[in-house]
Amino acid sequence: MATIIIPTPLRKFTENQSKVVTKGDTVQESIHSLTNVFPELKKHVLNDDGSIKQFVRIYLEDEDINVLDKEETKVESNSTISIIPAIAGGAI
């Protein structure tokens, strides 16, 4: 069980909910629990094989899961997971 914070641009896929309590013992299970409830969100967060999309970062509290155990990072009932769109661009 963890709470996932939904970034503003993706809230239209979660019925405008900014926080969703999910099931699962890992980050991956939590995110899959979220996308099972809100399937429209899936293509914005996950690739077809279930991995995290290139332009999305996942944080557990203030840590990038890439410096933890990635998708297999364990979560507790009071954990907070943030989905963060990688904001970038440029003139050319």
Partner: peptide
């Protein structure tokens, strides 16, 4: 407040989004 978007500048370039801008853009913003 509602978080509504991002601004950025294009030095020496027109105020038109590039393909790079589009690929990394998110809905709603």
């Amino acid at each position: 407040l509602d978080f509504l978007g991002i601004y950025h500048s294009h030095p020496l370039h027109p105020a038109i989004p590039s393909e790079h801008d589009r690929k990394q853009a998110v809905p709603f913003f």
